[in-house]
Structures are given as structure tokens and as C-alpha cells.
């Protein structure tokens, strides 16, 4: 991984595709300055690459006429953007705030960790799933809940969590740990 990244860093190939650049530039007229496009640009890259490596930060900074450190400063304030490696094909946010905790949210997260052999913030070795804890997802009436990609999973139980795992990681059997395989 490290070596790959080093190769990435030194490569002259840009990491932002022409399409990403166009999408970012298309937002300029919406704001009186380019700096305001920082967060939208980070999202555009993150949606495609599932992370925002330093090289992308440098290229975004060039587009927005900022110092890379300014973009990096903003990026690092938010917990959303990974930088060392892409998150899994599905990124699942399990709520741990009060309404979900009162209805077993933390047990569901613990169960998912146990079944996958990863901790919150980590990705399964097959790259299928990244688990995260979340603070209130704004869906407390469905507690305990989880946002996986764009779909909200409501009133979770360990059985529903297993079913979810079997969809995201069909190869590994119904949610059996492959972390140590």
C-alpha cells in the first residue's frame, strides 16, 4: 500500500479525472470565490475514489487557487474523508447516539464488528465493507439504525445485521469472518 501510494504521489498522471475537474469547475459560478468549492470538490473526489489522497488534495488546491495546506486543513477537520486507502465498496455508519443506544444500537455495532473481525473505521480485507460508528443519523424513530451507502437500515437486529452482511459480502458466507482467513 505504502509503495503504491508513493508511486501515486510521484506519478505525473493526475489523479482527478477530466470529468471530476469539469464537475468541480461547474460549481464555481455558484459562489463568489473558489475556496467555497472546497467541500463540494472533496465530495466529488470522495464519491468516485472512496478516499481523498494527498495527491488529490494538491490537485484540488490547484483548481481552487489555494495552498494545499488550506484544503488539507479543511479536509482533516471532518472525519469523513479517508486519506490512506479507499473505504470499502459499502461504507456503513451505525448510529451510537442516544435514541439508538436505548434500543440496542451499540450491540448491533458490536455484533457487526464481531462477525467481520474489524473495528469501526476499518475495512474488511476483501474491500467489501467499511464499518463506522456514527452520531445521530437523524432517523431516531427507526432506532437502532444504520446508513449503508445511501440506504437507511431501520430497526436493526442482529438477524437483520447478518442479512445485511450476506448481501454485502456474499463470498464470505452469511457474515462469517474472513478477516483471519
Amino acid at each position: 500500500m505504502m509503495r503504491e501510494q508513493a508511486a501515486n504521489m510521484s506519478s505525473t498522471e493526475p489523479i482527478l479525472t477530466a470529468e471530476m475537474v469539469r464537475e468541480i469547475q461547474a460549481l464555481f459560478p455558484r459562489y463568489p470565490n473558489k475556496r467555497a468549492v472546497t467541500l463540494p470538490a472533496l465530495h466529488i473526489v470522495n464519491d468516485r475514489l472512496r478516499y481523498v489522497p494527498l495527491k488529490a488534495v494538491v490537485e484540488i488546491a490547484q483548481l481552487l487557487e489555494l495552498a494545499p495546506a488550506e484544503v488539507q486543513d479543511t479536509l482533516s477537520f471532518y472525519g469523513l474523508f479517508k486519506q490512506d486507502q479507499p473505504h470499502g465498496r459499502v461504507r456503513a455508519w451505525v448510529c451510537r447516539s442516544i435514541s439508538c443506544a436505548l434500543r440496542g444500537g451499540e450491540q448491533v455495532l458490536e455484533h457487526l464488528c464481531h462477525k467481520t473481525g474489524i473495528r469501526p473505521g476499518e475495512t474488511t480485507p476483501d474491500g467489501a465493507l467499511t464499518l463506522e460508528y456514527a452520531e445521530c443519523l437523524g432517523a431516531c424513530e427507526f432506532a437502532p439504525c444504520m446508513l449503508a451507502g445511501e440506504s437507511l437500515h431501520r430497526e436493526l437486529t442482529t438477524a437483520k445485521a447478518d442479512e445485511f452482511l450476506s448481501h454485502v459480502r456474499p463470498a464470505s458466507g452469511a457474515g462469517h469472518s474472513s478477516a483471519h482467513a
Binding site: 447516539s97 442516544i98 435514541s99 452520531e135 445521530c136 437523524g138 431516531c140 424513530e141
Partner: peptide, 11 residues
């Protein structure tokens, strides 16, 4: 931004 734990009416 609706992020206050317990809140979902804006949604």
C-alpha cells in the same frame, strides 16, 4: 444540518 441527537423533523 439537523444533527442534534433525537431530532429528525427537518428530514
Amino acid at each position: 444540518d439537523e444533527s442534534e441527537p433525537g431530532t429528525f423533523n427537518n428530514r
